[in-house]
Design a binder for these strands. Structure first.
Lengths: 141, 141
DNA sequence: TTTTTATACTACCATTTCAGTCAGGATTGA
DNA sequence: TCAATCCTGACTGAAATGGTAGTATAAAAA
């Protein structure tokens, strides 16, 4: 029951973009050095964010990345699911064929209900909430 | 972000005990055949449940396992943490030294807050809630 | 006290998942 | 053109996960 580094890094990448890619696209290498993640690995991670429509990418000179929508419209749920796929505490939550008795299984029902609650809470947290806390940090300096 | 089979099987073992070990201890092999888990593997899993005080074990003839406390006092959180260790979505939640800047990291704060909410919800679900749904199942037959 | 019935525990193995790298390809602006 | 920049599939080493084998230990029954 862990968030993988993919999920964690995904969040940090988006936070970085929210802070530094307001006027023009931000370079991969700038994200990489600022977040202390290798450029190679960032390129893999940001690909997913691009494919799921959370960031826009621009190639060639003056290229880079920007958020595809405003921070308040990007939820923690979207971010983690972009990076790790659907959140499914147990496989029978999304794949009904996974266990034959799932229709009638008390355990499955509990997991499904918990899964739903977790997703709901992750949906209620947006990138903007993190930005607030970043700004407080800067003000304190 | 998955519940491992350890966690899932742990729940099923406890549910099995709640249903069938009311008067006298239930044998490992009976749990195994009823839950369709190998006896060997069950023995590993139930060991943890015993060590964390969720079940009592009795050796020798007439031995077996029983719940160590009533179902309503056993939460999903206890079960999963018994089987998988503390729930920590990210390592810095429990290990403050894990990331040097954790004191001042917006991302860490978000994960910690989410972690807290998830644990709270898991604490609010008890084995008794599952039993209700099991009984409904039996009544419907 | 011996035998039988059970659980307790440690070491080990196979498979899958995860984190991260490499090398080169594709696209765009100047 | 060509330099800047992102795109992508194949690959690798390490760690976690799922599961098995075998022996030790305890309790009850004979």
């Amino acid at each position: 029951m862990k968030i993988s580094t993919k999920g964690r890094y995904g969040l940090r990448i988006l936070l970085d973009l929210a802070l530094y890619a307001k006027e023009e696209p931000r370079l991969m290498k700038d994200i990489a050095s600022s977040q202390e993640i290798s450029e190679k690995y960032i390129s893999r991670l940001i690909l997913k964010l691009n494919q799921t429509g959370l960031v826009d990418s621009f190639r060639g000179a003056k290229g880079g990345f920007m958020l595809a929508k405003p921070p308040k419209e990007i939820s923690l749920l979207e971010i983690v699911e972009a990076m790790e796929g659907n959140i499914a505490l147990v496989d029978c939550v999304f794949d009904k064929d996974f266990c034959p008795k799932s229709e009638n299984c008390s355990a499955c029902k509990v997991w499904a209900s918990l899964n739903k609650k977790i997703r709901k809470q992750m949906k209620e947290i947006s990138l903007k909430d993190l930005l607030k806390s970043e700004k407080n940090k800067i003000n304190r300096l």
